Computed example of a mutant assay.
Amino acid sequence: MTKEIGEHGSFSSKDYTDPPPAPLFDSLELAKWSFYRALIAEFIATLLFLYVTVLTVIGYKTQVASFR
């Protein structure tokens, strides 16, 4: 693939336009069910991650203690 050279020997500009930046906080999103569904999913995933992590640490401690 070759790059096309535009005016004055420089490379041509992009062949697409970037979308405008999305707002960081959108108050209309708070009224949507999909926002709360995503919030609940994140909460459950975090609890599951912590549960597995704590069980792993407890299991490792009991396994190491039983070999001594």
Rank of each mutant, 00 (worst) to 15 (best):
residue 45 A to C: 08
residue 64 V to L: 01
residue 7 E to A: 12
residue 41 A to W: 06
residue 47 L to D: 13
residue 27 S to W: 12
residue 57 V to A: 13
residue 46 T to G: 12
residue 37 R to H: 11
residue 10 S to P: 11
residue 19 P to F: 00
residue 29 E to V: 01
residue 66 S to Q: 03
residue 37 R to P: 07
residue 61 K to P: 05
residue 15 D to Y: 07
residue 30 L to M: 03
residue 6 G to N: 04
residue 21 P to Q: 03
residue 12 S to T: 09
residue 60 Y to T: 10
residue 14 K to E: 14
residue 38 A to G: 09
residue 38 A to V: 05
residue 26 D to N: 00
residue 23 P to V: 03
residue 26 D to Y: 01
residue 58 I to W: 03
residue 15 D to F: 11
residue 28 L to H: 11
residue 35 F to D: 00
residue 9 G to R: 00
residue 53 T to Y: 07
residue 32 K to L: 00
residue 28 L to I: 07
residue 7 E to N: 09
residue 39 L to P: 04
residue 62 T to V: 15
residue 20 P to G: 10
residue 56 T to N: 05
residue 60 Y to N: 11
residue 63 Q to F: 15
residue 46 T to E: 13
residue 26 D to R: 00
residue 64 V to E: 11
residue 63 Q to A: 14
residue 1 M to L: 03
residue 68 R to N: 13
residue 16 Y to F: 07
residue 52 V to F: 04
residue 24 L to S: 06
residue 2 T to M: 13
residue 20 P to M: 09
residue 50 L to C: 12
residue 7 E to C: 04
residue 62 T to Y: 11
residue 10 S to I: 13
residue 31 A to F: 03
residue 5 I to F: 00
residue 15 D to C: 06
residue 50 L to F: 12
residue 66 S to N: 05
residue 30 L to T: 00
residue 59 G to F: 02
residue 31 A to G: 05
residue 32 K to I: 00
residue 45 A to Q: 11
residue 18 D to P: 03
residue 40 I to V: 11
residue 23 P to D: 05
residue 15 D to P: 02
residue 10 S to F: 13
residue 38 A to I: 08
residue 60 Y to H: 10
residue 20 P to C: 05
residue 55 L to V: 10
residue 13 S to D: 15
residue 5 I to T: 03
residue 14 K to L: 14
residue 54 V to D: 04
residue 10 S to L: 13
residue 17 T to I: 11
residue 40 I to K: 05
residue 30 L to D: 00
residue 55 L to F: 10
residue 65 A to T: 13
residue 45 A to V: 06
residue 16 Y to G: 01
residue 19 P to M: 01
residue 53 T to D: 12
residue 4 E to R: 08
residue 18 D to G: 06
residue 48 L to M: 08
residue 11 F to Y: 12
residue 10 S to R: 14
residue 25 F to C: 03
residue 44 I to S: 02
residue 64 V to Y: 05
residue 14 K to P: 09
residue 27 S to Y: 12
residue 10 S to H: 12
residue 21 P to D: 05
residue 66 S to P: 02
residue 28 L to R: 04
residue 49 F to C: 06
residue 13 S to V: 12
residue 64 V to P: 01
residue 23 P to Q: 04
residue 66 S to C: 06
residue 53 T to K: 07
residue 36 Y to F: 03
residue 43 F to Q: 06
residue 61 K to D: 13
residue 37 R to C: 11
residue 27 S to F: 14
residue 37 R to E: 15
residue 10 S to Y: 15
residue 13 S to L: 15
residue 25 F to I: 09
residue 11 F to T: 10
